[in-house]
């Protein structure tokens, strides 16, 4: 017995190394940083955001300033991207165009996220007839090709950049609504939600404190990719004359104005189009990277 007691006292207690807890956002960021394409995408997006903010400082000319003697100047050291049919500096217009495209892309998607998430949560949480009505509305909206629905909305509201933004926000609502609804349907079956109900927590508290935070990650991914689509849709509406009106330097509108001069001044088309493509590419790459990190199940 005494021996056993001696042996027991001889046991050295080795302190277990404390497991380093990495916060989830840091873990996600580290995983995101490992994806080279996603980083390139992030770089492109940051580049265009900086351009958008600094446009008034960087732009060498006033984007509205017309100088007819300088019309259709080819790219040169004076006018890096050349000039258009009114002699306006295309480089300055492309810089200011970044503001418009990012503004439309960001705020239209914000609108879609807010309304889509709200409707999706209500449909998924309350179910029954509420879900049936909201889901049918989504079905009807999704029955239209998106650009057509946007045209329909602008046909009602009238052509303007603001109305184009509203139209793009409206057409993307069902995408977010459906996504959130399906997520809510699975989250609301979780035990912690049942526990919250059992302790008498109010519906609004359950929805906003528990269900929403646990349903939001696919929305973030979808939103990043939706900004890319929204920028193209805004440019398409501008191209069709249903978005920004002159002299707003919106990229799609710039392409529409230049298409008649394709033979004599192709540079008037090249640069605005390139700007749209690069911005969209940036958001797409970033969105793909975010999807891999935040919602690997969505990965195709």
């Amino acid at each position: 017995m005494a021996q056993l007691a001696k042996k027991t006292t001889n046991i050295k207690v080795v302190p277990v190394e404390e497991e380093k807890l990495v916060p989830p956002w840091k873990e996600a960021w580290l995983a995101f940083c490992k994806n080279r394409l996603a980083l390139i995408g992030l770089g492109i997006v940051i580049f265009f955001i900086i351009i958008a903010f600094l446009a008034p400082i960087i732009a060498p000319y006033d984007y509205k300033a017309q100088k007819l003697v300088d019309r259709f100047q080819a790219p040169s050291s004076q006018h890096w991207f050349g000039t258009d049919d009114f002699g306006r500096d295309i480089f300055s217009r492309v810089l200011f165009g970044a503001r418009i495209s990012l503004w439309v892309g960001f705020f239209s998607v914000l609108g879609s996220v807010v309304f889509g998430t709200a409707l999706g949560i209500i449909a998924g949480y309350y179910g029954r007839w509420v879900d049936a009505i909201i889901s049918r509305i989504f079905d009807i909206m999704l029955a239209f090709p998106s650009i057509l629905l946007a045209i329909a909305v602008v046909a009602i509201l009238g052509p303007s950049l603001q109305n184009a933004l509203i139209a793009i926000a409206v057409i993307n609502i069902p995408n977010f609504g459906r996504l959130v609804r399906s997520k809510v349907l699975s989250v609301k079956q979780e035990e912690y939600i049942m526990a919250a109900r059992a302790v008498g927590m109010r519906d609004s508290r359950i929805l906003f404190r528990h269900i929403l935070p646990n349903s939001i990650s696919p929305v973030i991914v979808q939103a990043t990719l939706a900004i890319a689509t929204a920028i193209i849709e805004a440019a398409a509406l501008g191209f069709l004359g249903m978005g920004a009106q002159p002299p707003t330097p919106e990229w799609g509108k710039m392409l529409a104005d230049s298409k008649n001069y394709i033979m004599q001044a192709p540079w008037t088309l090249f640069f605005p189009g390139m700007a749209i493509m690069l911005t969209v590419l940036g958001f797409n790459l970033m969105g793909d990277g975010l999807r891999d990190v935040l919602d690997p199940k969505m990965k195709q």
Binding site: L255, L278, L281
Partner: peptide, 15 residues
């Protein structure tokens, strides 16, 4: 394919 997805159709048409 990645660039193709990001390309505005109307710009590609014009080019």
């Amino acid at each position: 394919a990645l660039v193709g997805v990001s390309m505005p159709i109307f710009w590609l048409g014009l080019m």
